[in-house]
């Protein structure tokens, strides 16, 4: 085992443990924090695989914004301090059986298929320069399509989250402003 493999196994155990805690813990906010640990460890794995640009994008997007969005979602629906006993639904045994079966099948398949494959990590593959050149030479059209999709998703999220549900939320603070807006529109 080389040093990279040792570090990969150690960080992989941390990632897997954090992921298991994330899907089994009964405290909702702790689940989001365990997700931070799992995704951060995955960024370390990307660095070990010499994909540094993807690693920093992972840190920026996932740890920076997605987890914050999830925490905001938890706070806006309900933010129980302490364990909530109804975090798991009634089909836990079925879920456990399905996930164990899929894990066994996938691991057996992967081990059988790639038993003699080695990743050569001497030359880095995935620095920012080559990835950027490849992104803007070969992948420009998917990139632009994805930017349009992101814009559509953003507009869709705004439209979904500010509709006529205002009558529950608008208290005395925004009543006047809404009155003006509705008057202006209608």
């Amino acid at each position: 085992m080389t040093g990279q493999e040792v570090v990969f196994v150690i960080v992989g155990v941390v990632v897997l443990g954090a992921a298991v805690r994330c899907v089994t813990t009964r405290e909702l906010v702790h689940a989001a924090l365990w997700l931070v640990v799992a995704l951060g460890g995955l960024a370390v794995q990307y660095l070990l695989l010499t994909a540094e640009f993807v690693a920093w994008v992972q840190v920026l997007i996932y740890l920076g914004s997605v987890v914050v969005l999830l925490l905001f979602g938890l706070m806006l629906t309900r933010a129980p301090i302490g364990p909530s006993p109804d975090a798991d639904s009634g089909n836990r045994p079925v879920a456990l059986a399905v996930s164990l079966a899929s894990a066994a099948a996938l691991v057996a398949l992967v081990v059988d298929a790639f038993r003699t494959s080695w990743i050569e990590l001497d030359r880095p593959h995935g620095e920012s320069g080559p990835v950027g050149e490849s992104l803007f030479q070969n992948w420009v059209l998917p990139f632009e399509a994805l930017s349009v999709l992101l814009l559509a998703a953003l507009v869709g999220a705004i439209v979904v989250s500010r509709t006529r549900g205002n009558e529950q939320r608008t208290e005395q603070r925004t009543e006047q402003r809404d009155g003006q807006r509705n008057g202006g529109v209608g």
């Binding site: 992989g12 990632v15 897997l16 799992a38 695989l49 879920a95 899929s102 894990a103 691991v107 790639f114």
Partner: peptide, 19 residues
């Protein structure tokens, strides 16, 4: 690095998410 390490980790992580 052996290819099995990331592949097995990804398979286990996927199963955890599935659960």
């Amino acid at each position: 690095m052996h290819l099995l390490y990331p592949a097995v980790l990804a398979a286990l992580l996927f199963s955890t998410g599935l659960y």
